[in-house]
Simulated scan of single mutants.
Amino acid sequence: MYTNSPLTPHPIDARRPGLRLLAVGLAVAAGMTLAACSSGEGGRSSSGKSVDSLASGTPTSGDAASKGGTHDSAVEAKRSQLRLDTSPEEDQRLTDAYNACLQAHGVPMNQERAAAAGAKQAPPKVGEADSPKYRPAYDACLVKLPRQPPETSPETNPHYADDYRAYVKCLQNRGMKIHLISDTSVSPDGLAWTFDDDTTGSLPESKIDQADRSCSLEAFGGK
């Protein structure tokens, strides 16, 4: 189980570029990365299928992770800005700081997932960002939630649709059995990918994180 990429958790198991940060990608490569698309936890279902959409890492630009809706300009100015080439270590460090803040504010954490991944910091449990009870916590910790690379958002990248299609094509060429779908959960122009019904022979999960990073740079970074 891991994140939505190009570089970030979502109640719908979303996989989006840029979401490596939050719970969505938290378990595979770095132990617990983003993004899950919005402070929730995306990833693989028991059937082995998962969806990938762009957002926020998780947990991004347009951050669905902030369910409280408070986007004060002073807070936004203090948030870290991720780049397409942000290292997994830095990504993880920022993700852990955000999740630690949520935990300190009383948000229930998925300790089982952390233990299984060998991670020190657990991500929030699925769906807690949607609970009115914990919205104040998400608002308070928004300042620690990094902004996703601007290239991975349709609001800040005029070539987003073409880039995202190139990103999905790159993943397919690397052996992932996936296909493109529309995802309006974060943006009306959002795109995502989901696994095919038949994933026989698909790229091993252990290699997906590296493929995701490489394809993100290639498609969104013009490389």
Rank of each mutant, 00 (worst) to 15 (best):
N157T: 10
N157H: 08
N157S: 09
P158S: 05
P158D: 08
P158Y: 06
H159M: 03
H159S: 12
H159T: 12
H159A: 08
H159K: 14
H159Y: 09
Y160Q: 00
D162E: 15
D162S: 11
D162W: 00
D162V: 10
D163G: 08
D163R: 02
R165W: 06
R165L: 01
Y167G: 01
Y167F: 14
Y167Q: 02
Y167A: 07
V168F: 06
K169M: 05
C170M: 07
L171D: 09
L171M: 14
L171V: 11
Q172H: 04
Q172R: 05
Q172A: 08
Q172G: 05
N173K: 13
N173H: 11
N173I: 07
G175C: 06
G175K: 08
G175Q: 08
M176R: 11
M176K: 14
K177T: 10
K177R: 15
I178P: 03
H179G: 08
L180M: 12
I181P: 12
I181M: 14
S182A: 15
S182D: 15
D183I: 06
T184F: 11
T184E: 15
T184Y: 12
S185M: 07
S185L: 10
S185P: 08
V186Q: 12
V186L: 13
V186D: 09
V186G: 03
V186A: 15
S187C: 12
P188F: 09
P188S: 13
P188N: 14
D189N: 15
D189L: 13
G190F: 05
G190M: 03
A192S: 09
W193Q: 07
F195C: 00
F195Y: 10
F195M: 09
F195R: 10
D196T: 03
D196H: 01
D196V: 05
D196L: 02
D197M: 04
D197T: 13
D198S: 04
D198L: 03
T199D: 03
T199P: 01
G201C: 02
S202Y: 03
S202T: 15
S202W: 04
S202P: 04
L203P: 09
L203I: 08
L203Q: 07
P204C: 02
E205C: 00
E205D: 13
E205W: 13
E205P: 00
S206L: 00
S206D: 13
K207C: 07
K207Y: 00
K207T: 02
I208V: 15
I208G: 00
D209Q: 12
D209N: 09
Q210V: 11
Q210C: 00
A211H: 05
A211Q: 10
A211R: 06
D212V: 14
D212I: 10
S214D: 15
S214T: 14
S214Y: 12
C215D: 09
C215R: 03
C215N: 04
C215T: 05
S216P: 02
S216C: 10
L217D: 04
A219R: 05
A219M: 09
A219V: 10
